[in-house]
Design a protein around this nucleic acid. Structure first.
Lengths: 152, 152
DNA sequence: AGTCACGTAACTTATTTTGTTTCGAGAAAT
DNA sequence: ATTTCTCGAAACAAAATAAGTTACGTGACT
């Protein structure tokens, strides 16, 4: 089963936005990720609804952060892109009245619920700024280092 | 993204087998689960390769347990059905040279690896017999209770 | 006006999983 | 011996889902 990479992609885009002076257009982002601008709008729409990004039409328009990276966590973005389930495997409901199936599903659901709790708790503790801090700012390609804002 | 229910289904089938006198045919199992006998053979093949079940051709043939339920864990079955990943969400590799993407993916991979470790550890600690013990034997439908073996 | 850019709906394509058909072979019953 | 039952495996068809594409509308800047 193929994995959903929207969370990863949106994190990537958001951190780029945090280091970018102006707005980023859907076309530009799509080109970066090797996909289509409509797909970008579709996914970014979830972030806009939560108030994490802002979109502007017309000349000079595009996408900008509505909050600093410090105020956004993995959990926020995970929820904003609307993942139905973290897990690729889950229970089956073939014979709802069968006590064996019920026992199996109760067991699985318990274990998965524990793992999901851990995962979301970890998500909650990681801000996008913390991710951005994992690499030195001056090895960035094609963008100004953070202190370049001083001349803008 | 739709969840893979093969693990759940196979657990269900295996526990039924543990309470069943003779062999269970693919047709019978498929009927139980509302699916096709070929699908059952396909999935059971993984369990056979690991030596957890045995298949027999011809009259009176079908599937039988090759090990007692006590000796099988969730982890065994999970691996036997060959799940590629527990998670429905994962990293994207759009710009392998981009340090932002790398930072995002390292972060995600770390968190997912932790959650997976927990999950598999929990899987390892649950035997199929333990699942079977979650319900009283005498509420079983369409099968003999365990002590019915005495008359066989 | 003309261009740029998002918003949205409808459609197409690609991929994956599941289900189906078909044939072969071994084992038991008749 | 032949028929019936059953798995094994390959090849094909169908269904579901996500991703990509096209097209047109709307607002904003030049």
């Amino acid at each position: 089963m193929r994995q959903d990479s929207r969370l990863s992609r949106m994190l990537h885009v958001l951190i780029h936005m945090g280091r970018h002076e102006g707005a980023l257009t859907s076309d530009r982002i799509a080109e970066m990720l090797g996909t289509n601008p409509v797909v970008i709008r579709r996914t970014m729409a979830g972030l806009r609804e939560k108030g994490y990004v802002h979109s502007e039409k017309g000349h000079g328009g595009g996408w900008t952060l509505a909050k600093p990276l410090e105020d956004l966590t993995l959990l926020d973005i995970y929820r904003a892109v609307g993942e139905p389930s973290v897990f690729a495997v889950g229970p089956a409901y073939d014979m709802p009245d069968c006590p064996i199936e019920q026992a199996v599903n109760e067991t699985l659901e318990g274990v998965f619920a524990d793992a999901e709790r851990l995962l979301l708790k970890r998500f909650e503790g990681v801000s996008l700024a913390a991710i951005a801090d994992r690499f030195p700012a001056d090895i960035m390609i094609g963008h100004h280092p953070p202190n370049a804002k001083d001349h803008g």
